[in-house]
Write a protein that binds this DNA or RNA. Structure first.
Length: 435
DNA sequence: TCTGGGGTCCTAGGACCC
DNA sequence: TCTGGGGTCCTAGGACCC
C-alpha cells in the first residue's frame, strides 16, 4: 500500500450495451441485453434500463427474457467493442505510460508514473475527472466509473461505489474505515464458495475477517488465498500495476444447443476447434506443449484431460489428433453439452515475423533468452533498448507506446515497463551482430 | 432448456530425481 | 525391517474474474 492515492481503476459502464446504444440511437433509453441469444446463452452485459428489471450478467438468456421480454437481445459485435476499448486504453496511456488492462472495459492506471505535479487528493481527483471526460469524448459518449486509492484492491473497491458515471477517491489513511463495514464478497477473489466457507466460520464483514488469525484463515482457505485475504483485510496490497501480462494458454470452446451423443460428430467438432486454436497460436506467435480438452456432460459435470508433448506445437492437425485421443478416454454416453480444446505450456519464444519485416530465413538470428525473461526469437533489427534499469528487449509496441522487458540476472521474470515511443529514456542501441 | 467463453491461479497427489 | 526430504513436472479439478 502506498502513502498516496496513486492507483486508478477505470470501469466502462455497461460497456457492450453502451456501445450498442451509441451506434444505434433507437436503442437509447431502452433495455438492451448483449448475450443470452442462443439456446443456452447467458447475458454478457445488460444496460441500466434492463437492470431495473432484475437482469444481470451471467443470467441465463431464458431468465432474462422472462424478466424483460421487451428488451433488445443482441448477440454482440466484438470488433466494435475492441475498437472502442483500444481508444479508451490510448486515453489512459496519455495520462500515464503504466496501464494494466484487465479486460476490454477495465484497467488500472499507475498515477505515480503520470506527469502530475503531485499526488495530493485534489490533484488525482482532478486528473480522474479529466480522464472520465476524455473517455466520454473519444468513445462518442460512453461513461466510465473511476476509483482512486492507494492500492489496486482499494481502487477497484472504490470504483464499485458510485456506478454508473461516477468517481470515488479514497484518501490515504481512510482505507480501513471504508473497508471494515463491507461484506467479504466485495473482495476480488471471494466468490460464492469462499463467501460460504467464511460465513460458516461466522465471518461476514471485513471487520470480522480482520479479527481472524492468519493461521486460521490459511487452515480454512489454503495457503495462498488465506494469506492473501488476511492481507487484504488489513488493506495491505503491494501488487504493482503491470503493463504487460504473459499469455499462458489459448483455448476455444463451445456449448451446443442440443447435447451431443455421436462420437464422430464430437471428434469433428474437436478437430475444427483444434484448427482454430492452431490458427490463433500462429497468428500470435505462440506454440505450446500441453494439449487439453474440456468436456461438460449433460449434468454439467466438467471433465478435463491433458497430454504434454515432448516439444511445442502450433499445428492444428497435431492438436486435433491429441484432442481426439484424449476424448477416447472419456465416457460420454449421457450426452455432452460443451466441448473445448486448449494449449498451454506456451513456449517462451515467438516467431520472428512478430517483429516485422525480417522474413528472410538467412537474415534471422535466433537469440533465445533465458526462460525467466520470456525469451524470444528475434531478428537483427529488433530493438534493444537501454535505460537506467539496464538492458531490455522491446516486447511490444503500438499506439505510440513501447513496452520493454528488462534483462535481470536474479529476479524472474524481468520487470516490464512501458514508455512513450519518444521517451528520451529509450536509447536504441545496435542489435548484436553475428556470434 | 437453469448454468457462455476465454482466461488466471491454486491445490493435491504421484512420478521422478538427487 | 518402519519410512528423508526437497524440488520439479505432470495431471485433474475447482474457484474465480470479466
Amino acid at each position: 500500500m502506498r502513502s498516496t492515492a496513486s492507483v486508478l481503476h477505470l470501469d466502462l459502464d455497461a460497456f457492450f450495451a453502451a456501445v450498442e446504444q451509441r451506434d444505434k440511437p433507437s436503442l437509447r433509453g431502452k433495455p438492451v441485453i448483449v448475450g443470452g441469444t442462443g439456446g443456452r446463452g447467458v447475458v454478457a452485459t445488460a444496460s441500466y434500463e434492463a437492470r431495473r428489471y432484475g437482469v444481470g450478467s451471467a443470467m441465463s438468456g431464458r431468465e432474462a427474457r422472462a424478466r424483460c421480454p421487451h428488451a433488445a437481445f443482441l448477440s454482440g459485435r466484438f470488433h466494435a467493442y475492441r475498437e472502442t476499448s483500444v481508444r479508451v486504453m490510448e486515453v489512459l496511456r496519455d495520462l500515464s505510460p503504466l496501464v494494466e488492462p484487465l479486460s476490454l472495459d477495465e484497467a488500472f492506471v499507475d498515477l505515480a508514473a503520470a506527469d502530475l505535479p503531485d499526488l495530493e487528493v485534489a490533484t488525482v481527483t482532478a486528473a480522474g475527472e479529466r480522464l472520465r471526460q476524455r473517455v466520454h469524448e473519444v468513445t462518442g459518449g460512453l461513461t466510465a466509473t473511476v476509483g482512486i486509492a492507494s492500492s489496486k484492491f482499494l481502487a477497484k473497491v472504490a470504483s464499485e461505489l458510485d456506478k454508473p458515471d461516477g468517481m470515488t477517491v479514497v484518501p490515504p489513511g481512510t482505507e480501513l474505515d471504508l473497508l471494515r463495514p463491507m461484506k467479504v464478497g466485495v473482495i476480488p477473489g471471494v466468490g460464492p464458495a469462499t463467501a460460504e466457507r467464511l460465513r460458516r466460520a461466522g465471518i461476514h464483514t471485513i471487520a470480522e475477517l480482520e479479527r481472524i488469525e492468519e493461521d486460521e484463515l490459511v487452515r480454512l482457505l489454503g495457503q495462498a488465498q488465506g494469506h492473501g485475504l488476511w492481507q487484504l483485510a488489513r488493506a495491505q496490497d503491494p501488487r504493482p500495476v503491470l503493463a504487460e501480462r504473459e499469455t499462458k494458454s489459448i483455448s476455444v470452446e463451445g456449448t451446443y444447443d442440443n447435447d451431443l451423443t455421436d462420437r464422430r460428430l464430437m471428434e469433428g467438432l474437436l478437430t475444427r476447434q483444434a484448427r482454430d486454436v492452431g490458427t490463433r497460436m500462429r497468428k500470435n506467435g505462440f506454440s505450446g506443449r500441453t494439449v487439453s480438452i474440456k468436456v461438460r456432460l449433460h449434468d454439467f459435470t466438467t471433465l478435463s484431460r491433458s497430454s504434454t508433448l515432448p516439444s511445442p506445437t502450433d499445428d492444428g492437425g497435431t492438436i486435433a489428433r491429441v484432442a481426439r485421443t484424449l476424448l477416447g478416454d472419456l465416457d460420454t454416453t449421457g450426452g455432452v453439452r460443451l466441448l473445448g480444446v486448449g494449449v498451454s505450456g506456451l513456449a517462451d519464444w515467438v516467431q520472428e515475423d512478430l517483429f516485422g519485416e525480417s522474413t528472410d530465413e538467412d537474415d534471422v538470428e535466433e537469440v533465445v533468452l533465458p526462460p525467466q525473461q520470456r525469451s524470444r526469437t528475434w531478428a537483427p533489427g529488433a530493438d534493444v533498448v537501454h535505460d537506467e534499469m539496464g538492458r531490455g528487449w522491446v516486447w511490444g509496441s503500438g499506439s505510440g507506446v513501447v513496452t520493454v522487458r528488462f534483462e535481470t540476472a536474479d529476479t524472474p521474470p524481468g520487470p516490464v515497463r512501458s514508455f512513450r515511443s519518444d521517451d528520451p529514456a529509450l536509447h536504441r542501441v545496435e542489435p548484436p551482430t553475428e556470434d
